[in-house]
Design a protein around this nucleic acid. Sequence first.
DNA 1: CGGAATTTGTCACACAACTGTCATGGGATC
DNA 2: GATCCCATGACAGTTGTGTGACAAATTCCG
Lengths: 222, 222
Amino acid sequence: MTAVLVIEDDDRIRLALLLALEEEGYRAYGVATAEEGLRRQRSDPAEYVLIDLMLPGMDGFECIRQLRRDDDVPIVVISARDDTHDIVAALEAGADDYVVKPVAIKELSARLRALRRRGRAGAVSSQVFGDLEVSPEAGEVRHGGQVVPVTRTEFRLLCELAEHAGRVLSRRQLLQRVWGYETGDERLVDVHVGRLRQKIEEDPANPRHLVTLRGLGYKLQR
Amino acid sequence: MTAVLVIEDDDRIRLALLLALEEEGYRAYGVATAEEGLRRQRSDPAEYVLIDLMLPGMDGFECIRQLRRDDDVPIVVISARDDTHDIVAALEAGADDYVVKPVAIKELSARLRALRRRGRAGAVSSQVFGDLEVSPEAGEVRHGGQVVPVTRTEFRLLCELAEHAGRVLSRRQLLQRVWGYETGDERLVDVHVGRLRQKIEEDPANPRHLVTLRGLGYKLQR
DNA sequence: CGGAATTTGTCACACAACTGTCATGGGATC
DNA sequence: GATCCCATGACAGTTGTGTGACAAATTCCG
């Protein structure tokens, strides 16, 4: 059965979430602090983590970062604030999705399902985005059935984006994950995204797959 | 030749799919109902099944479940609705992939390729790559029908690549698997690849089978 | 056993491909 | 309209790969 870990300090909300999740067929358990959440996830990993941002002690952002360090579990943020900054910061910390309280349980459930679907797709050796296909194993990129020659860096970049398809990755995240740079000029990412577009987009000036989210980063989509 | 069964009640869409699939090099045939599809698949199994969800009589979901009962064939759902519930239900019924109508045939083709890759079985006794043939058992390599004399190291290298045909193998991996070196100069691989090319490639400078993926490694393809 | 032939691994060089930086200009946002 | 953000082309430095030469190791064969 699919397990969900809920990290939320407000008892009433946490209990309500747990009940609703069990109603939906998940095995759900909750903790009230980030520290306990980390411990729990290490000892008995859940398939999903729901987390509030404002927590006593370690806050949600830091908790997400630490979770991400040793786990690729899908993380959904549940926050009271519908603030762009929070959303961006949470996604940059490594969250996969963001919902605003009060949470419609049906919506939450749909989002979990969507994540599961995406996760399943991510597990296969080859990913398809419309007329674009990325095969990490074959070291191959196809566009409209044709193999496109891409460089190693472009390939890594594309794989990284494909692995988190549909989700924005900031320039900083890409710099860290693709290049391993903790710091550095983010324009570097732009350049390589540009070059990649020349190869995999029909009309590089109007990208369909590798799109820019101004101020946020890049995203790969169908 | 790879056969595809299309289960779709709309005559125009079905015919269009069949034509497009044959264009792509598949042997395709179609039926209009789930019942007929099940019968057909039992009597003359195809390698892939494409299925619409909304069908007269037995619906797509039930059809998928029944197909799954006695067959491990990859099933791709073709639906008009881009609805999370449908997608989840179809995948849970046993489908392998889901595309939304109108279907871009290139995308469909790519998805079929992806499925084939995922489901590919292990090594076979003799492998053919166009005009290149490798028989590990006979200890022979043929190029254009002619037996080519290769050295033991070259042969091992070629077998290793053939066993993982279509996948990139890094120099390090090859060094480990062919030579048994945990560490060592990776240029060694280059040299042997070069020598192998002299023997099995029409034009060693422009290899068709034993290709380089810069920064990644080498790959054997047809 | 001994010499010849073959195979193997190392090295160095050359060339092509790739990478990252910079500057410029276009577009979006407020 | 000012500002910020992003796309893109050019360029020099770097890296990766192919290849020929050569010596050591191995195999072949009389």
